[in-house]
């Protein structure tokens, strides 16, 4: 019962993280914060998976004689993969922000829109 409640709570936290991440991602003009928002958003999803793997009274799935029940290991494996993907995405995003900063001398989306660093040398 407590486990169930715990998992419910976990889903609730996940929803909060999803909302928070998406809000920052959309609303904050700072590109770095947008990336952070994206990370929070993804973490929310990871949490959904991990919480779904929980079984009442489950233990970590190191199989020993008469050891069950175990939590479902598969979502953990999936999320490990997803985290790797997430890290790559974050790295690429950070590299892009670094380039934007080098070229345009700003990391704010609103200033980019207003043409910051635009030397207007095209043609």
């Amino acid at each position: 019962m407590t486990a169930l409640l715990a998992s419910r709570a976990a889903f609730l936290v996940a929803v909060v993280l999803l909302g928070l991440g998406l809000f920052v991602l959309i609303d904050d003009p700072n590109l770095l914060k947008k990336i952070l928002g994206l990370n929070v958003f993804q973490t929310g999803i990871f949490l959904v998976y991990v919480a779904a793997a929980v079984r009442a009274g489950g233990r970590s799935p190191l199989v020993v004689e008469g050891g069950g029940p175990y939590v479902n290991p598969l979502p953990h494996v999936l999320i490990l993969t997803a985290i790797v993907v997430g890290v790559s995405v974050t790295a690429l995003a950070a590299a892009l922000v670094a380039r934007i900063h080098a070229e345009r001398a700003t990391v704010r989306a609103d200033e980019l829109r207003d043409g910051a660093g635009e030397v207007r040398d095209r043609e």
Partner: peptide, 27 residues
């Protein structure tokens, strides 16, 4: 161009949200 990096970043942010929503769906 100077717009390449911002365009790529935007593509990345939006695209990753899309992929993440897909991940949530299959969860």
């Amino acid at each position: 161009g100077r717009d390449a990096a911002p365009a790529a970043l935007r593509y990345l942010l939006v695209g990753t949200v899309g992929a993440s929503l897909y991940l949530l769906g299959i969860g």
